[in-house]
Design a protein around this nucleic acid. Structure first.
Lengths: 221, 221
DNA sequence: GAGACTTGAGTGACAATGTCACTGAAGCCG
DNA sequence: CGGCTTCAGTGACATTGTCACTCAAGTCTC
C-alpha cells in the first residue's frame, strides 16, 4: 500500500474513478532505487507493470562482447512496458533498466494490472500507447544504428544530453554505450569536434563551444 | 462482412463466445493483397488492426539513402500491431509491410477493436502478447545490427530463408535488404562462402553445399 | 538469330568504423 | 610523494560501407 496518491501523476490513472484509484493505492507497492541501481535486468524480471513516479530510467541492451547500447529512457509519468513484454514472451533477452537518478516507482502486480486493463478504458489506452511509444523508439534506434553516421549520431546525442546546459558530464565510454559503439571511436570523433572548435574536453566533461555547429552536423542526416 | 469464419484461426478470437465471433464476422472486412503488394506503408496507415489469415508479410524499414532492413515477418495466425502503434504515436516512421506471398487478411476497425479489447480477456491478452512479440523481435534486430558480424548474420539468414530446402531464391540485393547492408558486402561474403565450398551461386539462386558449415558460422556469434 | 536493354553480380580503391594492444595523463588515497 | 585506478590518446590493422565502374545472364525486339 502506498502512503500518498500517485495516481494523479499518470495519464492512465488520473482519469479513473476515485474508488478505483483508492483501490490502486491499496494494492500497489512503491519502490525506491538509488541512482545507478538496476531497476530490472535479465536476472530480475518483475512480473508487474512499473510506473515511474519520479526520476529517470535508462534502458539499454548489452552484447556478449561487452558493448552496450541505450535503447530509450523512461521519464517520470511514463510506464515501462518492456518488462511486461519480456514476461509474456518467455524469450532470452538482455535489456536492463538502470536508474539514472534516484527514482520512485510504483509496482503494480499482474492481477491488478489485468483487472484494470479489463475494466478501465483510460488505463488500457495508456498501456497501449506506452507500448506504441516504445515500438516507435526502437524503430528509431534501428534506423540510427543501421543507417546513421557516427559523427551525426554523436552530435545529436551530445546536444540531447546537454539539454540547455553548456556541459555534458560523461566519459567517452559512456557516450560509446549511448550509441552502441566503441570508446576509441568516440574519442576519435570528439577529437575531430575539438579540432573544429565545436567543443572543449577535459576528463569526464565536454563543454560546448559552438552548439549551432554541432546542430548542423546532427541535422546532416 | 466476411463470408467465412476466420475467427477460429486466431488465438485471440477462437476462444471467444459464438455470439461475439458472429458479430466479428459481421463487422470485419477481408482484404486480399497480391504477392509483392504493399499492405501498409508511410503513405497508407490503416486505422485498424490487421489479422493475417493466410500468407506472410515482410515488415521492413528503409533509410533516406535507399538502404533497407527487414524488421520481422508476420505469419498467418498473427496480427500486425505496428500499424496500430504508429497510429497512436503520430510520429513519422518509414516502415512498410510487403506481402511476401498472396495474402488474405482481416481488417478490424478501431471501434470494434476497442470494444473487443474492453470486453474480452482472451482478445486483450492476444493483442498484448502480439505487442510483446514485436518488441522482442526489434530487440533482436538492434542486437544484430549493433553488435553482429555480417558473415554470421548472413549465414543465419540464409539458413532461415532456406528452411529445409536446398536452395534460396534471392538476389544479392534482396539479401542485403534483409540485413540492412549493401549489395557489395553481400557479394563479398557470398563469394567467401563459395570459396569455402559452403554454397554454389547462380543468378538469383543460392544452393547449399554444406549446411552444417554454415550453421557453424551462424552459431559463432 | 543478332543486337539492344535490363537486371544481377564482380571488382578495386578508398572511406568509415571496429578491434587490439598499447601508452600516458588525471585524479584519488594512503 | 608514490602507487592505484580510471580515463583518454594512438597506431596498426580488420571489417564494413561507398563509389564507380565492368562484365555476364537473361529478355525483348526486330
Amino acid at each position: 500500500m502506498t502512503d500518498f496518491d500517485w495516481t494523479e501523476r499518470f495519464q492512465g490513472t488520473a482519469a479513473l474513478p476515485p474508488a478505483v484509484r483508492k483501490r490502486l493505492n491499496n494494492t500497489a507497492r512503491v519502490i525506491h532505487v538509488k541512482k545507478g541501481g538496476q531497476v530490472f535486468g535479465p536476472a530480475n524480471i518483475p512480473d508487474s507493470l512499473i510506473f515511474l513516479y519520479d526520476g529517470r530510467i535508462r534502458v539499454s541492451q548489452s552484447s556478449d562482447s561487452g558493448r552496450e547500447i541505450v535503447l530509450y529512457r523512461v521519464d517520470a509519468g511514463e510506464s515501462c512496458v518492456l518488462t511486461t513484454a519480456c514476461m509474456l514472451a518467455e524469450e532470452a533477452y538482455n535489456a536492463e533498466g538502470i536508474a539514472e537518478t534516484d527514482i520512485t516507482a510504483i509496482v503494480l502486480p499482474k492481477p491488478a494490472f489485468d483487472r484494470l486493463a479489463a475494466e478501465e478504458d483510460a488505463f488500457r489506452n495508456f498501456v497501449f500507447s506506452a507500448y506504441s511509444r516504445r515500438l516507435i523508439d526502437l524503430l528509431r534506434v534501428v534506423d540510427d544504428v543501421a543507417f546513421g553516421r557516427i559523427d551525426v549520431r554523436l552530435a545529436e546525442r551530445l546536444l540531447a544530453l546537454g539539454q540547455g546546459s553548456k556541459q555534458v558530464h560523461a566519459t567517452h565510454q559512456e557516450l560509446a554505450s549511448e550509441l552502441g559503439t566503441a570508446r576509441e571511436v568516440v574519442s576519435r570523433v570528439l577529437n575531430d569536434f575539438h579540432k573544429r572548435e565545436l567543443i572543449e574536453q577535459s576528463r569526464g566533461v565536454i563543454t560546448f563551444k559552438n552548439k549551432p555547429g554541432l546542430a548542423a552536423i546532427a541535422e546532416s542526416s
